[in-house]
Design a protein around this nucleic acid. Structure first.
Lengths: 233, 233
DNA sequence: ACAAAAGTGTTGAGAGTACACCCATGC
DNA sequence: GCATGGGTGTACTCTCAACACTTTTGT
């Protein structure tokens, strides 16, 4: 930005000399339901791409930061706060929206399996969870965005502790393993998996689960102050 | 973006209903000079932040993709094409620019040490290379951006083959090692380093260097079709 | 006693780490 | 022949991968 300013500057009007693009924030919302990784999509009821599905989002309010814009939209859409949210990538090809120049800053969000209640929130809306492997026809370049988001999700699972933000506060080791197996579409060896996770020293033991008709599993929670560790798997 | 559109849509005018932010593209340009990792900065000669240094960039032309905007600015600034260029992050806090709402899409570029000629390009400009460890006072939130870019650079060096885009087409193993040592500010064991790099099977042997007053080193080149491999170190 | 899921150890292979000397050339 | 940077091998440790049975509970 600076160069053009320094070359052309007289006063502050150079901010208005350039035709401004529209800026939107879209958030890819991931959640695991019924042993399946799903994303939330909304159905468009207007042209262009009427009746196609799209990643939920909205225009940036001029007074909000991008992060806040994403947070607000997310809460409005899912009724959930305190979600893992991270900026993904900014898409800005000139013709990605036929109506004009639109630059989209994408985010991805991870919902905990605790928030099943949220489903109600969507009932009367044209919003629906889709399995990442069985996507419908998508509007704009949203197919590309989802594919990028999925890659990033896997990467994050491999090298950081974000996975735990998709689990309840207290969870069993089996839940952790199942989550990883869903995201990577593979099976892991139970003994090696547990050994690996425990060796990272990021979990606290909690009480043991009660009232189950099988050997009661140990509950764990993520240690406080665990940063985004590198290399889980 | 979609949700707001579908809710409020009558025609295409919703693109104009929102006050649009300005969008700029800034590129952090890295280069190794004299065994030192440097970034290119330009001196602002206008308010705000007059006489402070800033990351070079400019407003997005409404008809260019973000990538192209970054490429054009980079060529204009350095006279160099075919450079490694990657989108970094988009910064959009409401008050990062005192003149108004400016959203900045940042990129980072890696120059090959081959292009020393480019230095001429800058002579009469208020542009200068700064060591990443000895930065001057910076405009806007550019300090934060540089710190983010440096982190990403290290990360990329560890997990991908981008390092080779900072070397000449043909290079010696010592040059590779020195580059890594500069970026990570550490020394590596020569034998282990070479073993590691060679074991990746990403290099082709070229001829041996001539006319040196010591044992002539083997030259290597990066194999064609080597993608962005994961895990170098 | 049985169904259901939890939990646990050992071995072998491969990768990473530490470490010091000889080599080829130009002058 | 000497100064300069280039090039090489081995032993030890540690991590990763493969593999199957016993335990605890509720009914």
């Amino acid at each position: 930005m600076v160069e053009t300013i320094t070359k052309t500057n007289k006063n502050n009007s150079e901010l208005h000399k350039y035709e401004k693009p529209s800026v939107t924030v879209d958030t890819v919302i991931f959640r695991v339901v019924e042993s399946d990784l799903k994303v939330l999509l909304v159905k468009r009821n207007a042209t262009p791409f009427k009746d196609k599905w799209a990643i939920p989002g909205g225009f940036v309010d001029i007074n909000n930061s991008l992060d806040d814009a994403a947070k607000l939209k997310l809460e409005e859409k899912t009724g959930v706060k305190d979600v893992y949210l991270e900026q993904l990538y900014t898409f800005g090809k000139p013709n990605r929206d036929p109506r004009g120049r639109v630059i989209t800053v994408t985010y991805f969000a991870l919902l905990s399996s605790e928030f099943t209640s949220m489903a109600e929130h969507l009932k009367n809306d044209d919003a629906q969870w889709f399995s990442i492997t069985k996507l419908p026809l998508l509007a704009f370049d949203h197919k590309e965005i989802l594919s990028y988001a999925f890659k990033r999700l896997r990467w994050k699972f491999e090298y950081t502790t974000v996975a735990f933000s998709m689990l309840p506060k207290k969870f069993t080791m089996t839940q952790v393993q199942e989550l990883y197996e869903i995201v990577f579409e593979t099976k892991f060896d139970k003994r090696n998996f547990r050994k690996k996770i425990l060796s990272l020293d990021i979990l606290d033991e909690q009480e043991v689960m009660r009232n189950v008709s099988f050997r009661p599993p140990q509950l764990y929670s993520l240690k406080a102050n665990v940063g985004e560790i590198v290399t889980i798997l």
